[in-house]
Amino acid sequence: MPTAVHVRELTADDLADAWELGRFAFGSDPQRPPHATEAVPGLTRYGAFDDAGRLVGKAVDLHHDQWWSGRAVPAADVGGVAVAPEARGRGVARAMLSALLRGAHERGAAISALYPTVVAPYRACGWEVAGVLRVVNLPTVSLPRHRPDPRFTIRAGTPADLPAVAALYERVTRHRNGPLSRRGQLFDFFAAGGGLPGDGLTLVEDAGDLVGYASWERGRGYGADSVLTVDEALASTAEAARELVGVLGSWASVAPTLRLCPLDGDAVSAHLPLESAREHERNLWMHRPVDVARAVSARGWPTHVRGTVDFALDDDLADWNTGTWRLTVADGAAELTRISGEADLRLTVRGFALLYTGAAHARSVAQAGLLRHSTGTDPAGLDLLGAGGPAQLLDYF
């Protein structure tokens, strides 16, 4: 039976209770970090309160931007969703997510992603599984080794190199769909300490220009169970990637396992023996539009794609998305315009998420029951929404 709850933004006085609620939900360390009970720019914290004023749920809107084919799209990525055990199954999460979406819409967000611990409650609110963040283990000895190319400089990075690292990350990811831009107040806040992101940072330079980097955690020991965790390894050229992989392979004698999250089809992955990879961890991520018109107009589109398709959309939680729309794609841009009347294609918001992220084709979405169409109507026109290839996230939040 749904319970009436009041949802509002959390104040400073609420943050200690919110930390405790999250600590119990996720089994966090009892020692809370300083930012848990202080104002943090670039996020909005929501709480659900029962009739007695007790905090029974919390959720955080992370003010991220995501790269979509060369353009940064404002996102309301969701983290830290927790509901008190005594209040679960009573509509608390739905009430919080409804308020979060409305607040995100008001501040101009277009899309949203999250990592679920369980998918059903989020599906009920319009998010759908769109991909997996995979962490794999590789035998370090299996990485290809070669004689270092003298035209490259390989050196240890320092905090002074972090702006160049951020610039290279952007060059590698901005033409893709889904990766965070890592810009904005939230990232600036956590970068303010100025330290390296891990134990070490290895740089590859070509005539003074950064063309590859790997940030890593050394771990403990040097025996058979020792692991080198590579938080990120990216390169802008095949030659730089080969140098970087060679350096990582040099750890084989003291770290037999290399652990990393590969970026599909990038320069570094092209040099990894992925046939030897064994999955260490996988985290499903889900997606939904906050505002479908913004989601379409704010992103980049392949310049060779052109087309028009009409469809109706149903969105129970974000009613501003509900209606009949015309999608027009041309010359590297697209727009959604409202039209009157009905359409032969009727899409759920979860179906929209699958198509927009390139996670499924329209016929598959129809087979899943997330797209309805009249007999004889080919739904493939809605594949326009997925032009540009599948989305992939690199950051866990």
Rank of each mutant, 00 (worst) to 15 (best):
V7S: 01
R8A: 05
R8C: 00
E9S: 08
E9C: 07
E9V: 13
A12S: 14
A12F: 07
L15C: 11
A16L: 15
D17E: 03
A25I: 10
R32H: 11
P34I: 12
E38G: 04
V40M: 13
T44R: 15
R45T: 15
F49Y: 07
F49P: 05
A52R: 13
K58P: 00
L62S: 00
H63D: 13
H63V: 01
D65V: 08
D65L: 12
W67R: 01
G70A: 12
A72M: 06
V73G: 02
V73P: 08
A76Y: 00
G80P: 00
V83S: 01
P85Y: 04
R90P: 01
V92Y: 02
M96W: 01
S98A: 07
A99S: 13
L101C: 02
A104W: 00
H105R: 02
A109E: 07
S112K: 12
Y115E: 01
P116V: 09
P116E: 04
V119C: 10
V119H: 11
A120Q: 12
C125E: 07
A130N: 04
L133V: 09
V135N: 02
V136E: 12
T140Q: 10
R145V: 08
R145G: 04
H146T: 06
H146K: 07
H146E: 13
P148S: 12
P148E: 11
R155W: 11
P159I: 03
A164C: 09
L168R: 03
E170Q: 13
V172Y: 13
N177F: 06
G178I: 12
S181W: 09
Q185Y: 05
F187C: 00
D188E: 13
G200H: 01
L201H: 03
T202D: 05
E205S: 15
A207T: 06
V211I: 13
S215C: 13
E217C: 11
E217G: 00
G219W: 12
L228Q: 02
T229H: 15
T229Y: 03
D231T: 01
A235W: 06
A235I: 05
T237W: 10
E239Q: 06
A240V: 05
A241L: 11
A241F: 09
W251F: 09
V254T: 10
A255Y: 03
T257K: 10
T257A: 06
R259S: 10
L260I: 01
C261M: 05
V268T: 08
L272Y: 08
P273T: 06
A277T: 14
H280Y: 13
H287R: 12
V292I: 15
V296A: 11
V296D: 00
G300M: 09
W301K: 11
P302C: 06
G307N: 11
G307V: 05
D310F: 00
L313I: 15
L313F: 12
D315Q: 04
D316G: 00
A318K: 01
D319G: 11
G323T: 13
W325A: 10
L327C: 02
V329A: 10
V329S: 05
A330K: 10
D331G: 11
R338H: 02
T348G: 15
V349Q: 10
R350K: 03
G351K: 03
L355Y: 00
Y356N: 09
H361A: 14
V365L: 03
Q367P: 09
G369F: 08
H373G: 04
H373C: 09
T375V: 04
D378Y: 08
G388P: 15
G389Y: 08
A391E: 03
A391Q: 14
Q392W: 06
L393T: 02
